[in-house]
């Protein structure tokens, strides 16, 4: 679950996710945007569209950012 506390974006695991990821993850503004889209069930193309709409970056950079973001979530045990 994504929360904003004291100006910081924080992902708090819920339910049995606590077993695999018993910690907290802080996100940047961009990370928080991507996470909120993921919570709504967005796929990679929708994440890309969201980044391109929100930020003035090119498609290649945005794609690389998304791959890095999803990879870090997987590595951290935040997502299966």
């Amino acid at each position: 679950m994504l929360r904003e506390i004291a100006g910081t974006w924080i992902v708090v695991p819920l339910g049995d996710r606590v077993v695999d990821f018993n910690g907290l993850m802080t996100l940047s503004e961009t990370g928080a945007l991507l996470w909120s889209k993921l919570e709504q069930g967005a796929d990679e193309s929708e994440l890309l569209a969201a980044l391109l709409e929100e930020y003035a970056i090119d498609r290649e950079t945005a794609s690389a950012d998304i791959i890095e973001f999803l990879g870090s979530l997987e590595t951290g045990g935040v997502m299966e």
Binding site: I5, A6, G23, T26, S28, L34
Partner: peptide
């Protein structure tokens, strides 16, 4: 975009500095 390197205690201490100042009931 993510930061997994910080220990929970360090993170909490940092958050508390802001929360104490702004009176946010984080705990």
């Amino acid at each position: 975009m993510t930061d997994q390197s910080m220990s929970l205690q360090t993170f909490h201490n940092q958050l508390r500095l802001i929360a104490d100042k702004e009176r946010i009931p984080i705990t």
